[in-house]
């Protein structure tokens, strides 16, 4: 495989136009997969096109509408170190803080996490509750779409051939008083989520929820939302009683699977129980 390091977007698009070319960001998903493919005699790309030579794909900036623009090739550690991410997107920062391990966070990127589109991808539930969108670019131009539309299934996205994710646009969560992310895994570092929950609650002056956004990871083929549980929280203070009622709604509706990490029954129990944590916030 050839490895190319374009310095500008047009050069990148030209490189991606070659047959068998593949984007290489941090390599923490791709290089693991390619090695397995090589060993099993499966086809591998003819060239890998690096993103880390393009400064415009890295870093955090403020958009005119107030949202934060997170460069797709920014590493998890780079995002975590950024004050705007910590202050305005704490639900994302919490997920990044426990993603993989320190070296994985030093190498892995946000764009890579989205494009891998794993059911256990840790940045996905927080970005979903934030209402984030993605900016995509190719030789044909730039387009934006909601993250919820971009990810279509496990490992599947709307990325067109020759197209890359250039940035994630995430509206600030400052007006949400309750912001929470929690991942349950088999251990604390290097753990693939067994179940995760990202939650944002907007409260009125009396502490009652006027908006609830909940998103779970690892309980379905992609991030799972539960409008019925969100509705159950509206007009309520997030007390244990109210949260238990919403948790029952979650357990009745969630349809996780058994796998080597956990049983479906355990997952649905935990998917509900994770909500109870909001009572303590």
């Amino acid at each position: 495989m050839n490895v190319l390091t374009p310095r500008e977007l047009p050069e990148l698009f030209a490189a991606l136009a070659a047959p068998g070319a593949r984007v290489l960001a941090g390599g923490t998903d791709l290089l693991v997969r390619l090695r397995a493919d090589l060993r099993q005699g499966r086809k591998v790309p003819s060239s890998l096109v690096r993103l880390d030579g393009l400064e415009e794909l890295c870093g955090v900036a403020r958009e005119p509408d107030g949202a934060l623009r997170l460069g797709a090739a920014t590493t998890h550690a780079g995002l975590l170190a950024h004050p705007l991410v910590r202050v305005e997107l704490p639900v994302l920062a919490a997920a990044l803080a426990d993603l993989g391990s320190p070296p994985i966070r030093n190498m892995g990127t946000l764009g890579g996490n989205l494009c891998t589109a794993s059911p256990a991808g840790d940045t996905l539930p927080p970005l979903m509750v934030l209402g984030a969108s993605v900016e995509l670019a190719s030789a044909a131009g730039v387009r934006r779409m909601a993250l919820a539309d971009f990810i279509t299934g496990p490992g599947r996205t709307r990325l067109a051939p020759g197209e890359i994710v250039t940035a994630v646009l995430a509206p600030s969560a400052r007006e949400f008083a309750v912001r929470h992310f929690e991942k349950v895994g088999r251990r604390s570092a290097l753990a693939v989520a067994v179940v995760s929950l990202a939650a944002l609650l907007r409260l009125d002056a009396r502490g009652k929820a006027v908006e609830a956004r909940l998103a779970w990871g690892s309980v379905g083929p992609t991030v799972w939302r539960c409008p019925e549980a969100e509705a159950a929280l509206l007009g309520q203070r997030p007390t244990l009683t109210a949260l238990k009622r919403a948790a029952a709604v979650v357990r009745a509706r969630v349809q996780p699977i058994d796998d080597l990490r956990a049983s479906a029954a355990y997952r649905s129990e935990v998917a509900g129980n994770l909500l109870l944590r909001l009572a303590a916030l």
Binding site: V3, T5, L24, G26, G27, T28, L31, V32, L48, R50, D52, A77, P102, P103, I104, N106, M107
Partner: peptide
Amino acid sequence: GVQKLSCLMLAAQLE
């Protein structure tokens, strides 16, 4: 100066 995993890096990335 940053901890990285050399099993998930390619020669070209050391340039």
